[in-house]
């Protein structure tokens, strides 16, 4: 009787059909969606970002491989899943492009080794690894983390490269604060000047949110829309996040237009649009249900604005996301959608 058994063990479990999607294809799409932003960034702000991305990616992949080896996991499927690349790109994009190379390297190491693999690797990290790296570095090296290439000075590529390699002698001449930081400082120095007057300096602030920076933000926005179209991300978290930022900034703006910048400025400045589409949408450390995603995004938006305007750091996206990462399991528990046939009418 056993002669005609034909169990091939190939058919482990139904369904035997599957959609042609994989973790890798999702991650590759995220990387593709970042490309327009990267391109605009490289053209308008600093081509050194490309070098930073190479440094971060190489470090991240190396760290990933080493950790996988240590944990006794196969390298092939995990190295090629693209998750380390996404993390490293986000690190490069949130760090200053002229940050010294070792800062980027330590950021990538912190993200992959501590925030990802020490918690159990892909799918297990409670915190967004890129944001952990950013937070750790900005707390440890606040000065280096706020030296941004001056958009107005037209720094040359070679100077930026030298800065990254730590060989630049006139670093201060190259740098300036980010528009957000500049605004904060200006407000502190001259509390009497209305904010509109300050923002009219288009050399620093551009049309909205900072010269050149608004173009980068717009490029992220386009990439994010494409991700939505590809159904890689769902609209709930970005919408919640943007709504949180816009709602609170609009409220403050209406309350005192002289002291608070417009919602438009806040949306297009700093990491808000990058965060909305590429950071709060991280599935692993975020919420799962649609309602949860919305609450997660909204709370992160409120916190990001609060930290950026009332806090000590120039931008609040990283910290707000980390704080919400802690709350994600609770939000998930409270927003579990009702099951088929068990809804209250």
């Amino acid at each position: 009787m056993s002669r005609d058994r034909i169990h091939t063990m190939r058919f482990i479990s139904p369904p035997y059909l599957s959609q042609n999607k994989s973790v890798r294809s999702l991650m590759v799409k995220v990387l593709l969606a970042l490309l327009p932003g990267v391109a605009v960034y490289a053209c308008l702000i600093g081509p050194a970002i490309l070098l930073q991305m190479v440094i971060a990616s190489a470090t991240a992949l190396f760290a990933e491989a080493a950790m996988l080896k240590l944990r006794g996991k196969p390298l092939g499927p995990f190295l090629s899943d693209g998750s380390a690349l996404v993390t490293s790109w986000l690190i490069a994009l949130t760090f200053p492009p002229i940050a010294p190379w070792w800062l980027t390297v330590s950021g990538a190491l912190i993200a992959i080794v501590i925030a990802k693999h020490l918690y159990g690797g892909l799918g297990q990290n409670p915190f967004n690894p890129a944001m952990v790296a950013f937070a750790a570095c900005i707390v440890s090296f606040p000065a280096l983390m706020s030296q941004w290439p001056s958009v107005t000075l037209d720094t040359r590529f070679t100077d930026q490269i030298l800065a990254v390699l730590g060989l630049s002698r006139n670093l201060d001449a190259l740098t300036s604060a980010t528009p957000l930081d500049a605004l904060k400082t200006a407000l502190r120095i001259s509390p009497e000047t209305p904010i509109a007057t300050m923002l009219s300096d288009t050399k620093i602030y551009g049309l909205a949110g900072g010269r050149a920076w608004e173009c980068v933000a717009a490029a992220y926005f386009l990439g994010g829309l494409w991700l939505l179209r590809c159904k890689v991300i769902r609209w709930h978290a970005p919408a919640g996040f943007l709504f949180g930022v816009v709602a609170l900034s609009a409220a403050c703006w209406f309350f005192d237009p002289g002291r608070f910048a417009s919602p438009l400025f806040h949306t297009f400045s700093g990491g808000v649009l990058l965060g909305a589409f590429f950071i709060v949408t991280d599935p692993v450390s975020g919420c799962a249900s649609d309602m949860g995603k919305m609450i997660f995004g909204f709370s992160a938006g409120i916190l990001a604005y609060t930290i950026r305007v009332f806090g000590g750091y120039p931008d609040g996206v990283a910290f707000s996301v980390l704080i919400l990462n802690v709350c994600a399991p609770l939000i998930d528990l409270l927003t579990r959608p009702p099951v088929f046939g068990m809804k209250k009418k």
């Binding site: 190939r10 482990i12 599957s18 994989s22 973790v23 999702l26 499927p77 995990f78 899943d81 998750s83 690797g121 892909l122 799918g123 297990q124 769902r234 599935p283 692993v284 975020g286 799962a288 249900s289």
Partner: peptide, 12 residues
Amino acid sequence: PPRPEMPCIRCG
């Protein structure tokens, strides 16, 4: 044939 099982990334 089924491809390797990866960890859940909670994509939902």
